[in-house]
């Protein structure tokens, strides 16, 4: 069985989201807690700006949960930078036990999943999940310099400048809760085009979603929303197509964070957004707000990641994908 049912239903008691300029100009603008039009967040390098976003996101989440940093027994965090340094430098001052994760754009689900399992198992009472990505940092690391005059292909996705933090707790009360999780497997279907991440990650999403429905016997109609991390336009359509072939019809209630965060046509965002901060800010901003308002009660969140590096790309290796699943339900235990 790949699906793990969490009997104690860990609750999400606080959340915070931070985004950059283009995200704040997108359709979800009002749902994010904090944004900076300059995307510097008061820092002199983009790397420090990304760390600062994580710090602000976690502080916001703690404030919402009405608790101090000392209550966090473990923080699970990650980003796209080499050696996960955005998380390290952003979260060092909290003094909380720290686990650095790398799951590319799937990291937020990975962090939620591990936090929820350890809270469910009784190992911790309060954990935090924090991830971020910054457009400028990712461009520098994976693509071209910021002022380089290049064209993006239509299938390319833009790395979101954003961070999200959530506090996972064993507390009682009326909170959104993580009731099921399903860790993803590494799936590689031979896609090599780093400008078409959606195609590279979709097979992992298909693998996870298909096995989830097969194992649990649920159907897509049982959920208010099925949300993939950041497959973008290409991956979203591909996943929907293939899953329909497996008898899983997602046409009614399936969306993708990478498609939601930008107005793709108006903002000229090609295939949509991506990055660890994409689904993190959409979940901790938009989705949690809708849980609060009671608009959502049962959401399947499947974050996808492309597990490649600039070196593996240049060496001609294909891009493996992964998709972790987290089910979030409203209500009491």
């Amino acid at each position: 069985m790949r699906v793990k049912k969490l009997n104690r239903k860990p609750s999400l008691i606080g959340w915070g989201s931070v985004v950059g300029k283009r995200e704040s100009e997108g359709p979800l603008s009002d749902d994010f807690d904090i944004h900076d039009k300059g995307e510097c967040f008061g820092m002199n390098t983009w790397e420090k700006a990304e760390s600062e976003m994580q710090r602000i996101a976690l502080n916001t989440a703690l404030a919402k949960a009405k608790m101090g940093a000392e209550s966090i027994e473990a923080v699970f965090a990650g980003d796209l930078q080499n050696q996960c340094v955005s998380s390290v430098f952003g979260l060092a001052d909290f003094g909380a036990p720290f686990f650095g994760l790398y799951g590319a754009c799937s990291t937020f689900a990975e962090a939620l999943l591990l936090s929820a399992m350890l809270v469910d198992g009784g190992n911790f009472d309060t954990c935090a999940a924090v991830t971020s990505s910054h457009f400028c940092v990712a461009e520098r690391q994976y693509r071209f310099p910021l002022e380089y005059g290049g064209q993006r292909t239509p299938t390319a996705q833009r790395t979101v400048t954003g961070a999200g933090a959530a506090i996972i707790s064993s507390a009682n009360g009326n909170f959104p809760r993580i009731t099921e999780v399903m860790p993803g497997r590494i799936v590689n279907k031979g896609i090599k085009d780093a400008n078409n991440m959606g195609a590279a990650m979709a097979p992992a999403a298909i693998d996870t979603i298909r096995d989830y429905f097969n194992e649990t016997g649920y159907s897509p109609e049982d959920f208010d929303l099925i949300l993939t991390g950041d497959l973008g336009a290409e991956g979203h359509a591909t996943a929907m197509d293939y899953l329909l072939g497996y008898g899983i019809d997602l046409r009614k209630n399936y969306s993708d964070c990478g498609l939601m965060i930008y107005d793709i046509n108006r903002q000229d965002m090609h295939a949509g957004g991506s990055g660890c901060g994409c689904s993190a800010s959409v979940i901790c901003g938009h989705i949690m707000k809708r849980f609060e308002k009671g608009e959502l009660k049962n959401v399947l969140y499947v974050a996808t990641g492309a597990l490649m590096s600039p070196s593996t790309s240049k060496q001609g290796l294909s891009i493996p994908g992964i998709a972790h699943l987290v089910r979030i339900e409203a209500g009491r235990r």
Binding site: T153, G190, N196
Partner: peptide, 13 residues
């Protein structure tokens, strides 16, 4: 088949 499918549906410049 998957590679062929993706090459077929990918939006061209």
């Amino acid at each position: 088949e998957y590679k062929k499918y993706c090459a077929g549906r990918a939006k061209k410049s």
